[in-house]
C-alpha cells in the first residue's frame, strides 16, 4: 500500500482530520473517511453527477478529484444543505414536486443546483435546464427535477440577498 498523507478537510464547516492514500477520490474520502455517505457514487468516471459536491462554492464531480486535492478548500455536501430542521428551498421544492423517486441521484442534483444558483441566481429556465443536463437520473424523466429547481430558483431570487 502506498503511504498515507495526513490532511484536514473542511466539510460543511467542520474540520475532519484524515489519513489517506493520495489515490483515494474525494468521493471515497467523504464517504468512508469523513462518514458523510450522502454523496453518492454512480459511475466513477464523471458522467452521472451523483457525486457532485461544492468545492470553494463550485459544483464539481468528487469522483474526479483526489481527496488530497481538497486540502485547504471549503467543501459542501448534501448533509450541509438544510438549516437544522428547515429544508433548503431546493430540498423543499424537490419534495413538493416529486423531484425524486429512488433518491440516489438527488444529492448530486441538489448540490449542482445549489452551487449554480448561488453563482448565477438569475438563470433563465432554459439555462437551468441546460445545467441540469450535467447529471443523470434514471427514475423521474427529469420533468419534476427541472420544475423543482426552477421553482426554487424563483424563491431564492425573491429572498433578500446577503
Amino acid at each position: 500500500m502506498a503511504s498515507k498523507i495526513n490532511i484536514d478537510l473542511a466539510v460543511n464547516g467542520t474540520s475532519h482530520a484524515v489519513s489517506i492514500e493520495p489515490r483515494r477520490t474525494l468521493a471515497d474520502v467523504l464517504r468512508d473517511d469523513c462518514g458523510l455517505t450522502g454523496t453518492h457514487i454512480g459511475c466513477e468516471h464523471g458522467v452521472c453527477g451523483a457525486c457532485t459536491v461544492l468545492v470553494d462554492d463550485k459544483p464539481v464531480r468528487s469522483c474526479l478529484m483526489f481527496g488530497v486535492q481538497a486540502e485547504g478548500k471549503a467543501i459542501r455536501t448534501v448533509e450541509g444543505l438544510a438549516n437544522g430542521d428547515t429544508l433548503h428551498p431546493l430540498q423543499q421544492a424537490f419534495w413538493e414536486n416529486h423531484g425524486l423517486q429512488c433518491g440516489f441521484c438527488t444529492p448530486g442534483f441538489l448540490m449542482l443546483s445549489a452551487g449554480v444558483l448561488e453563482q448565477n441566481p438569475d438563470m433563465s429556465d432554459d439555462e437551468i435546464r441546460d445545467v441540469l443536463s450535467s447529471n443523470l437520473c434514471r427514475c423521474t424523466g427529469y420533468q419534476n427535477i427541472v420544475k423543482a429547481v426552477q421553482i426554487a430558483a424563483r424563491e431564492l431570487r425573491a429572498r433578500p440577498r446577503v
Binding site: 463550485k58 459544483p59 464539481v60 441546460d130 450535467s134
Partner: peptide, 12 residues
C-alpha cells in the same frame, strides 16, 4: 466553451 462537456466539468 458552452459546448464542452457539462457545467461541473468546465469548473475543473
Amino acid at each position: 466553451a458552452s459546448n464542452i462537456a457539462h457545467y461541473p466539468i468546465r469548473q475543473r
